[in-house]
Structures are given as C-alpha cells and as structure tokens.
Design a protein around this nucleic acid. Structure first.
Lengths: 250, 250
DNA sequence: GCCAGCTCTGTTGTATGCATCAAGGATATT
DNA sequence: AATATCCTTGATGCATACAACAGAGCTGGC
C-alpha cells in the first residue's frame, strides 16, 4: 500500500499561485509575508523560493528581495522559440510511436474541441487546448522532455497567455483546425510532417499572442525592456554577445 | 575558458563537484558533512541542495537524505533524446543566422580539433568537443535554450561521458568528421540539413557511449535500480520524476 | 535650493537548538 | 532459530535569534 503523497508542498503551492496569477509578475515576494500566510517560519519559505529560483519562476536579488519572474519581450520570444522546438519534437516522437493509448485520447480531445468551438464555449476550449498539448508531450514517451516542457510553460506564464489569446483573438477556429491537421499526420505516422506542422502551429499562436498584447496593451505581464537586473536570471555563463536585435516574431 | 568568479556560491561549487565526479552518483550528501567542508552552518547548505534538486542534480528523500542523482539507463536514453532535440535545433538556428562571430570561432575550433585528433592529443580533443557544442548553442542566439542545455548536460554527467567515450572508443576521427560536415552546412546556411546532421551526430555519440558502457562495465555512473514503468508518469506532478522512486518495501 | 553624508528601517543571510522521523540493531517472545 | 517489537542512533525539518546589508529618508552644511 502506497503512502499518500497528496501532501502539497509549499513550493508547489507558491508555484501554482504564480501560474494562476495570484502573485503578479514583477511583484515582491516577502519571506516574512509568505511565512505568515503559510503559517510556517521563514526557513521552509526560503527553501521553496530557492527551488523556484532554480526553475526560473522567481528572481532573487541578494540582500534586496525575491520577485515573481516577469519575462521581457525578448525572453518571451526566446521561450516561444524553445516551445516550438520541444513541441515539434514531441509531435514527431508521438507519430513515430504509432498506436499508443494517447492517440485515442487525442482524438477524443479534438472531437470535444470542435464541439466547444462550435458552441463558443471558450472556457472549455482553453481547458482542451492545455490538454491537447499535454497529450502530445505525454505521447512522446519521454519524461525528461515533459519535465522540461512544464518548467518552460511555467516560466512563460503560458496558462494566462492562452486564456488571453483565446478570449481576445478570433483564432480559436483556426487553431482548432491546426490541431486537427496535426492529429491526422500523427495518425498517418508521418513524423516529419508532424514536427513541421507543430512548429508552424506554435509559431502562429505566438504571433497571435503578440498581436493581442500589442492591441490590448496588456504589457503588465511583461517586464519593461530595460531590466534593472538582467544578470540575475541564470547561474550559468550565458554572457555571450549582447547584441540581440529585438526582432519581433520571426 | 574558465572565469574565476570571486564570489562563487556554494550551489555552484557543489554543482561543479558533481559534474567533475568529485561526488559520486548515488552517494549520500550529508548536510552536516558539507557544512563542515564549506565551513558554514547547515542552513545555506540546505538551500543549495534544494536548488540542485530543482535542477535535477540531486535527489532528496525526505527525512532520509540527499543523494547525487544517478540516472538509470532509461533516463540516460531519454536525456540523450532531448540532447538530440536541443542541439539539432541549435544547429538549425545557427545556420539560419548566417555570418555571426561564433561562425569564425567554430571554424577555428574544427581546425584545432583536426590537429588534436591527428596528434592523438585526447585531452585537448575532449576540451574542444565541449567547446564545439557550446559554440553551437551560443550561435543559436537563444539564452533560454542554452540554459536548458546546460542543465541537461549536468544531469547527464555529460563531461564524464565524453571523457569516457573519447578515451575508450576509436570514434574520435569519425566524430571530428561529423563536426566538420555540420560546420559546412552551417556555413552554407542550410538549416534543415544542419539539424538533421546534428541529430545524427548526437545519436551516433549516444550509441558509442552505450557500447563503451557495455564493454567496460562502467555501470557505476548509472543507477542499477530499474526505474518504474514509464506509465507511472501519468500521475504527473510538477516536480517530475524526482519522487517516483519510493520503494514499496514492507 | 541643493547635495553629501548619515541614520534608520526593513529586508535578506546565517547560526543554532530542538523536534521529528527513518533505519537498523537489540531484545524478548514463541 | 525465527520473528515481531522496542529502542537507539543519526539524520533531516523547522523555529527562532541575531547579523549584515540595501535603500529610503532625514539632516545639516553650503
């Protein structure tokens, strides 16, 4: 008999609140405040924040404070580029694996999505979009790839972006159509095409998001282009050429 | 190319020691022992270990101890699959960016590598292999991608594997030839081919490693305990497969 | 009015003590 | 001898106290 491990850790709890937007990007996360909120001392809070820092969800400025990560526009572009890579690869792997349980679930998902779009049930569609991409990753059969993917989506505040895009752009039917096409080539076990189509799909959703952000002025989720602490994001020696042109969607 | 940072954090230090094999995979990392070794109290040690847990370099078994991550054979395969994906994508991005400073550095690297192989200077060749792959990632111009890559390589204990492969297999000339071919198609700005060749290259080096491990019986870097079935990942939590290894010993 | 320097406050960084629990050995029972 | 139970041991988990520092605001001199 297995022990119950439904015990939510503080780390999971804070992570969830960041993902759901309870803690606003850029805002400070005071250790003392969190300690009081969770009714523990600062020690476990600090450990949780350090974990989240390693995941890239918060930024620690030594001797100053911890802040919810707010990606710059450039970083959002980079994260979407990585998303394109990971999901494209997952689609290829899925297609190459042939008839696996996830395939049936994916078909079911697409059926429900068409229904939700037809009924203008946007809430359910948002949910189904998440499930679709989750199923693709699961179908790739690589737990490390899936772990990277989820870490990435958290950094991107992807849930909020999907919500925003679905609600503020008319792209739902087009997006649903793309999901359908990808499913078809996966069924046909055409890994090459699956990867290409998935990359196109992610790029299109990226572009749609950027347009929505442009028009709605929802820059609040983003960090101002000139970040005061650009080096605090990574432990590695990433200090390569700084001449990154702030290109828009490629 | 080593920059010695004056303010090296404990986290970086432990990470480096794991990467270099000072701390053996699977061995216990006692907080008290580390605290004494670094001449600090247990508190900063605990925070460092929690960060490394989030990076996947150590595994924490609650109330028991912290252990250096030792991937199973399945996990090594998964990690190499992800490596193939990331490096392939980086090669494509590099090729698409055209004439960037990294291109000249890459040419220089390949020149030196040929020389090292001709002179049987394996130590230098190992170093150049690392530089080559680093340059590819840098040339992709995506800091998030590079960060993921480095995290992955740490989990893989990649440095030690490269060392082992270069020394124990005769693949150096072949590997060097592949590096050369990839450079050529990058110069020709052929992103598609660059991605394909890089994936082939990573897969070949993976295979070479597995053969070396098979013959040399160097299983010490791997975890002998077989991981639970991949289906066990269905109950996904954001901490990933970290705590999936609770043995049901009754 | 303005700026340099200082103090003051709130924050994070660290040390330490105690509580809690896992794992293995000792012991009693059969 | 085998087994179940208790206990010892050593580790981690957490709370608390204090130290050290960043940044804002005040003060005083000019």
């Amino acid at each position: 008999m297995k022990k119950k491990k439904n015990q939510k850790t503080i780390t999971d709890d804070i992570r969830s609140r960041i993902a759901r937007g309870v803690y606003i990007p850029g805002s400070a996360l005071s250790e003392a405040a969190l300690a009081e909120e969770f009714e523990v001392s600062r020690t476990p809070i600090r450990e949780a924040l350090k974990q989240l820092q390693a995941e890239g969800l918060v930024v620690v400025r030594p001797r100053v404070g911890t802040f919810v990560f707010a990606p710059t526009r450039l970083e959002v572009n980079e994260l979407f580029e990585v998303k394109e890579i990971l999901e494209g690869a997952a689609a290829r792997l899925f297609a190459n694996r042939g008839n696996i349980p996830e395939l049936e679930l994916l078909k079911e998902n697409v059926r429900k999505s068409e229904h939700a779009v037809a009924n203008q049930d946007l809430d359910q569609y948002v949910e189904l979009v998440h499930e679709y991409h989750d199923l693709i990753m699961r179908g790739a059969g690589n737990s490390k790839l899936m772990h990277l993917y989820h870490t990435l989506m958290n950094q991107l505040l992807h849930s909020q972006f999907v919500h925003l895009t679905v609600r503020s752009s008319g792209r739902a039917p087009q997006s649903d159509h793309e999901h359908h096409s990808i499913l078809e080539v996966i069924e046909a076990r055409d890994g090459n095409t699956a990867e290409r189509l998935m990359r196109d799909h992610v790029r299109a959703s990226h572009q749609a998001l950027m347009e929505v952000l442009e028009f709605s002025g929802q820059g609040s989720l983003l960090n101002a282009a000139s970040s005061p602490a650009p080096e605090a994001l990574t432990d590695f020696d990433l200090n390569g050429p700084d001449n990154k042109q702030d290109e828009a969607v490629k």
